[in-house]
């Protein structure tokens, strides 16, 4: 039986977590022309306007591209890395694990600055490519971690059984290992997707003229136009994230992997 005090604490925590969402959602429903709370009357016009802003369309497309392909690239690197770290007694495995985790630990501002100073400036790579590389690197730790935990639960003798039935090691991986860590890989994809999509500090440094991810574009938009469309867009993105995580939890038991 929860005490009154614990109920109050729970209510405060939930308010703290969910309150801003509610404010943003309501602010986006405003009928007025500037971002304000409580909203100035009610209308859906800002929610509809979001879809007509051209720069949002372009930056949404870029963010989607980075989130999908950056995460896929991170998985393409991360799944074999997780496999090798789990299955083989590699020299320096611990070092590799730490290096792989670094992008989570090092503040994004520093990663962004470092990439700008030592990747973009000296090599002159395109902005999109730089963003793609940065997002891949940022998602990689999650890919390795989440896939590692599902590999950890998968017995190695299953692969040996497959080999004795005629598989090569590679076939055994695709026929036996991959199908059994599918849920973990999907969980890693969703986590990576959300991480990449919401990424601000690194993208801030790497964005260039006309090439911005959606969060950066929203920041830029707000500097010029202080209307409720940013609140409306934020609310839409929040719903999208919630929907993805909800679906993942329902179909995969997402919380087991994160």
């Amino acid at each position: 039986m929860p005490t009154l005090a614990s109920r109050v604490v729970l209510a405060l925590v939930l308010t703290f977590l969910i309150g801003p969402f509610v404010i943003i959602i309501l602010a986006g429903l405003s009928a007025g022309n500037s971002l304000a709370f409580p909203p100035d009357g009610l209308s859906l016009k800002w929610y509809l306007k979001v879809f007509t802003v051209e720069s949002f369309q372009a930056s949404f497309a870029l963010s989607m591209f980075l989130a999908v392909f950056g995460t896929l690239a991170a998985l393409a690197l991360g799944v074999p890395a997780a496999y090798a770290l789990n299955r083989y007694d590699l020299p320096g495995a611990e070092t590799v694990r730490i290096i792989v985790a670094a992008p989570i630990i090092v503040p994004g501002i520093i990663v962004g600055l470092a990439l700008l100073r030592y990747l973009v400036v000296p090599t002159g790579v395109g902005v999109t490519l730089a963003l793609f590389l940065a997002h891949t690197a940022l998602v990689l730790p999650y890919a390795v971690r989440v896939v590692s935990s599902s590999l950890h639960n998968l017995r190695a003798d299953m692969e040996e059984a497959a080999v004795l039935l005629g598989c090569t090691r590679l076939q055994a991986f695709f026929k036996v290992v991959l199908p059994n860590i599918r849920a973990g890989v999907l969980a890693a994809f969703i986590l990576g997707f959300v991480t990449s999509f919401n990424q601000v500090p690194v993208s801030l440094f790497l964005s260039g003229p006309g090439v911005r991810t959606l969060p950066i574009d929203m920041l830029a938009y707000m500097e010029i136009t202080y209307d409720p469309s940013v609140a409306a867009l934020s609310a839409l993105l929040a719903f999208l994230s919630v929907a993805i995580v909800f679906a993942a939890e329902k179909f995969l038991g997402f919380s087991r992997y994160v």
Partner: peptide
């Protein structure tokens, strides 16, 4: 994978 030897694992190692 080319020895034609069968192995029944203690854990069964079923797929």
């Amino acid at each position: 994978n080319r020895r034609n030897v069968g192995l029944v694992f203690q854990s069964y190692a079923l797929f």
